[in-house]
């Protein structure tokens, strides 16, 4: 099937969604996706950041679709013509969505572990407004510990449901879901049941914001101070292929290997993620390729200026080479 997105034409298989077709083209025309996750069945359609305009439904039916559609959950038709960044209407809608996502967001990036690898930060940077038009008090929830490894900060949650699908589909044993409705829903572990499962840590990786974070890494470092290294080990639970976030020879945290759209290549087990923090546990393969646009790849400021940075743990000042 042939589909044209922002004047670029690509051939894809039947059943492909507009978003996947756009990713096949790549580059700036790929709509942002905050809730869809290729590895989670049933995900998508909720955040509405991926809305696009279908200017021509198909070769057979050249009419435009009456509303903007969620590109993550709309299959392409042969001869479809889609507008993303070439449509002012789409950009306007995306701006509106970002505004909606932010009116209740605590904007606590300075104390959020996700800062630097947060999809909402990136999205706001590209599409957000400078000032908020909302004067309402923001929703507030107490932070919850989901077991001793995971922290849930519901204030930052955008209700993408990815963690719910993960708990459902990856861990096999769901003790975790969405409670309440309207503007009051909460991700809950159902009366704070601990998610106790070999794969529960993956909810941290799928969370696009800082709502679910790794307690074993909490406040240890800014991600952009760390080097992302691909590493592996023989693991009996999972493939053992991870990204180790290192400072010198010290491993600060372990995550799945994320691609440029923030999706992990493989889900990893809790043992790899939380227990194996010694250099000797891993075979280091080499630096992980991280998109040049990401804040994380700015981790070495040496080409710009030579700043003094505070060592995140010891608090000692040292010159960066």
């Amino acid at each position: 099937m042939r589909v044209t997105i922002d004047d670029i034409t690509v051939d894809v298989e039947e059943g492909t969604t507009i978003l996947t077709a756009a990713r096949k083209i790549g580059g700036k025309i790929v709509p942002p996706a905050m809730c869809w996750y290729s590895k989670l069945k049933g995900s998508g359609g909720k955040c509405r950041t991926c809305l696009v305009k279908v200017a021509q439904s198909s070769a057979k039916d050249p009419r435009p679709m009456p509303k903007l559609v969620a590109s993550c959950s709309t299959p392409v038709q042969d001869g479809m013509v889609v507008q993303n960044i070439t449509s002012p209407e789409v950009l306007e809608a995306r701006k509106a969505i970002v505004e909606f996502l932010l009116i209740n967001h605590p904007l606590d990036c300075p104390v959020c572990d996700q800062a630097g690898e947060c999809d909402l930060q990136d999205l706001s940077f590209l599409h957000g407004m400078v000032e908020t038009r909302s004067e309402e008090p923001r929703r507030e929830f107490p932070a919850i510990d989901i077991g001793d490894k995971i922290k849930l900060n519901m204030n930052r949650c955008i209700l993408c449901y990815r963690c719910v699908f993960t708990a459902d589909q990856i861990t096999g044993k769901r003790v975790h879901g969405v409670l309440y409705r309207g503007d009051a829903p909460e991700i809950s572990t159902y009366i704070q049941n601990v998610i106790d499962n070999d794969f529960s840590g993956n909810v941290i990786d799928v969370c696009p914001v800082g709502a679910l974070t790794d307690r074993t890494f909490r406040f240890k470092s800014r991600v952009w101070f760390l080097n992302a290294m691909d590493a592996h080990r023989d693991c009996t639970h999972c493939g053992g292929k991870v990204t180790a976030w290192m400072y010198g020879n010290e491993i600060y945290r372990i995550t799945g290997r994320k691609d440029k759209y923030g999706e992990v290549e493989e889900f990893i087990c809790n043992e790899c993620r939380f227990e194996k923090k010694n250099f000797s546990d891993w075979i280091i393969e080499g630096p992980r390729k991280i998109s040049r646009e990401s804040v994380i790849s700015a981790n070495h400021y040496e080409k710009l200026i030579k700043p003094s940075i505070i060592h995140p743990i010891e608090g000692t000042t040292e010159k960066q080479e």
């Binding site: 359609g45 909720k46 955040c47 509405r48 950041t49 509106a96 969505i97 909606f100 996502l101 009116i103 209740n104 909302s134 309402e136 955008i158 209700l159 449901y161 969405v178 309440y180 409705r181 309207g182 503007d183 009051a184 829903p185």
Partner: peptide, 18 residues
């Protein structure tokens, strides 16, 4: 409408409550 939104998609959840 604020009370009855399912809260699933951002424009409706946040917009009605705004």
């Amino acid at each position: 409408y604020r009370h009855e939104s399912c809260g699933q998609c951002s424009p409706c959840r946040e917009g009605t409550a705004w």
